[in-house]
Every structure is written in structure tokens, then in C-alpha cells.
Amino acid sequence: MSDPASKRPVMIVPSVLPADFSKLGEEVAALEAAGVDLIQWDVMDGQFVPNLTFGPDVIRSARRHCSVPFEAHLMVYTPDVMAKDYIEAGCSRLIVHAEACTHLHRTCGNINDLGATAAVALSPATPASAVQHVLDLVDMVLVMTVNPGFGGQAYIPTMEPKIREVQAMLEAVGRADDVHIEVDGGIGPDTIAGAAAAGANVLIAGSALYRDPEGLEHAVSDLRARAEAARA
């Protein structure tokens, strides 16, 4: 019997946290040229997580420099307040944290009503069951493989069983083919196979892309090949 996860294509997605913030337009253009599938913006509010990062105007200014889709990972306490601005800035998917939403079902519905697609992120200590009752409203579940808030952290391999749990939940509700599973945190050549084999098909890479001595294009193709081999 074929693996339902294999029907979802592997997608290599950069976090722009390691990029040169003084030339983000050039950076996103370079990422598109390297073959990424979309670009993730890690939006941090200084409260849900310690850092502050990208406001909607920054993302809007970069939007015209490439054509791949943008998604915003909203590591914030007020996603409902911020959603419209990030969608208008050019983000076609908004990822909210289950831990930050008082009414997660309402928040996902609001994002969909605004014309974007909703996704939910789970921090390491949050059980997979936190998304069970919003699977009809999302097109992706993000399993964090580090604690949110900082780039360059080490991958937490004990999150792989949670990825499998999410996959099983999607199978149970008949959405295994059309809801993506994303992982974010510590993804690189040595860790991507474990995440992909567990069921993830959208793989966020930051530091690993930028530190590849052979450049961004090699890094993207190498990670894609490793993920596809793990899912074969």
C-alpha cells in the first residue's frame, strides 16, 4: 500500500531569518532563482517569542522582487489583529500558533474569510491533538522541531512521532492528500530525512541553506533530493 504522504509534493522553503536584511529584495530574488517553492517570513512580536522581526511593510517591499508565494509564520499573541495587514502585504498563507489563539477555530475561519489559507503551528510541548478540531479549516499543519523564536537551533528528533500523529489524524478525516505537513527548526542535510520519512512534505530551512559552501541552488536541490529519497 502506498504512503498517502507521498502524494503531497516535497517543498523546500527558506526562512529569511539568516538573510541580509539590508537587501531583502535581492535576497528573495536569489532564493527564487535557487529553486525554492515558497518563502516563509518568521513574524515575531517580542511577546509570544523574545525577538522582533518583520512588519507587513517590510514584506510588502520584498513582494515585488519575486513571484513565489509568501507565507507568514505568525509567532504572535494577536494574529486576528494582524492577519489582514499581512495578507495585504502579499502573504497567501498565514500560520498561527495553537498556543497563542484563544479561539483557534475562529482565527482560522477569519484568515480564510480574508482570502488567505490558514495553517496551525504546534510548539514542541503542544500535543498534536490541539489541531484535531480545525483540520477542516487548514491547508497545513506545522510541527515545530525547535522551540519558536530563534534561528540556528538544533533539531529535536523526538518531534518525529508527533509528525506521524498528525499524518494519522489527516488520514482519519480523509485529508491526507490535501493538507500539508510542515516542519521548521534545525532542518539540514543530516535531519531532513527523518522529518520527511515521518510524513512532512514542506521543509523549512534557514541556516542550512545559507551556509552551504556550494551556494543556495545546490543547498535547495540537495535537501530536496534527500527528502524525496526518504519518502520514496
Rank of each mutant, 00 (worst) to 15 (best):
D190V: 03
E71P: 00
V13Y: 02
A19D: 07
K162Q: 11
H65V: 02
A198N: 04
G174S: 11
N110H: 14
T117W: 00
D184G: 00
V28W: 06
V76P: 00
V202K: 13
G35R: 10
D42A: 02
G90C: 11
P9C: 11
H180Q: 15
F150H: 10
L170G: 07
E27D: 08
A229K: 15
V183Q: 09
E228S: 10
P189Q: 14
T53G: 04
V120A: 06
D37I: 05
A100S: 15
D139P: 02
C108M: 10
M1I: 12
A176D: 14
V173D: 12
M159G: 05
V131H: 01
L74G: 05
D37H: 15
D45P: 07
A227N: 12
E32T: 08
V166W: 07
V138N: 02
A205E: 12
V179T: 09
I59E: 08
A118E: 07
R63Q: 09
H105S: 13
F150S: 04
T107S: 13
I204H: 05
P79H: 06
R8Y: 10
Q167D: 14
L223I: 05
A29K: 15
S22C: 12
V183E: 10
S207M: 08
G215V: 04
S15V: 02
G46A: 11
Q40Y: 01
L52S: 03
G46Q: 01
S67Q: 14
A130I: 02
